[in-house]
Amino acid sequence: MSLDSLFSSLSNSKSDPKSLLGGLLGSSGAQGALGGAASGALVSMLMNGKARKKIQKNAVKVGGMAAIAGVGYYAYQKWQQSKQDSAPAQVQVLPAAAPAANLIPPPLPPDLAGASFQVRVTGELPMKMVLAMIAAAAADGTIDSVEMSALADAIDNAPVEAAEKARLTSALNKPPTVEEIAGLANGPEEASEIYGAALTSIEVDTPSEHLFLRRLSKALDLDEQLVATVHETLEKA
């Protein structure tokens, strides 16, 4: 993605970057959702303008990372549901002791907003998503020195531990490869959430960006229909 339009929108905005996403850092719920990854300013800068506008309303309510993770989470649930709906009916003989609750799939969230409230953004997932966003933003190699400085400053001001700041700074100076990002994913649902996060940082309007997303989806071992559903989810948000 070219970050030119993104930083243009930031500089032309009447708000400070830290106030983007509806005063994300001032929300008690947002602090927990951002836990251990980045401040609202960094997440805002990494998203492309279109994605930021689409996700902003959910981010104010549930936190930036939960709103972004909701894209991949909702797409994954929709994809799972479509697989179940298309599967041929089978008669199963179940052991008497099998608990019926385990046979009922989780209900499909009603929409992206519902998914953002349901998704669990805990542990290392926020960091994994931000690393994917950094790699995506750098995919076409057009982050200039001014943009780099702004992102580095956002990392410096992020309310996270020194070790996490160092990890983010390292990623900014040397973005992780698609293979390294894929190695962070813990299962297909998380892989979908990481891919969705990367997608929010990219305009998908250059060959290098298309190639990045193809390589990332392959490295994450995502089904083609699932990938299409992630794109559709963000487009219709």
Results as ranks from 00 to 15, higher is better:
M1D: 10
M1V: 09
S2F: 10
D4Q: 14
F7Y: 15
S9I: 14
S9R: 15
S9L: 14
L10N: 13
S11I: 12
D16F: 12
K18N: 05
G23I: 02
L25K: 07
L25Y: 13
G26M: 13
Q31M: 13
G35K: 01
G35T: 06
G36N: 12
G36V: 05
G40N: 03
S44A: 15
M45Q: 15
N48A: 03
K50A: 15
K50T: 15
A51F: 06
R52W: 02
I55P: 02
K57M: 07
K57Q: 11
V62C: 06
G64H: 04
G64I: 01
M65I: 03
A66R: 08
A67K: 09
A67L: 08
A67S: 14
Y73E: 02
A75M: 05
A75N: 02
Q77C: 06
K78Y: 04
Q81V: 04
Q81F: 05
Q84N: 10
Q84L: 15
D85F: 02
V91H: 12
Q92Y: 07
A97I: 09
P99R: 11
A101E: 08
A101Q: 11
A101F: 08
A101C: 04
L103R: 08
L103T: 03
P106R: 07
P107F: 04
P107N: 06
L108V: 01
L112I: 05
A113L: 05
G114E: 11
A115M: 00
F117E: 10
F117V: 07
Q118Y: 00
E124I: 03
L125F: 02
M127S: 12
M127V: 07
M129P: 06
M133W: 03
I134D: 06
A138H: 14
A139V: 08
G141K: 11
I143S: 09
E147I: 12
M148W: 14
A150W: 08
A150Q: 14
L151P: 07
A152P: 08
D153W: 05
D153R: 06
I155P: 01
A158Q: 03
V160R: 02
V160F: 04
E161L: 13
E164W: 05
R167T: 13
T169A: 13
S170Y: 09
K174Y: 09
T177R: 11
A182F: 12
G183Q: 14
G183T: 09
A185I: 01
A185V: 00
P188M: 03
P188A: 03
E189Y: 01
S192I: 00
A198T: 00
T200V: 01
E203R: 01
E203G: 02
E203H: 02
R215K: 15
R215M: 10
L216K: 12
L216Q: 12
L220A: 09
D221T: 05
E224P: 14
T229F: 01
T229E: 05
T229W: 04
T229R: 00
V230S: 04
V230M: 05
E232Q: 13
K236F: 11
K236W: 05
A237Q: 07
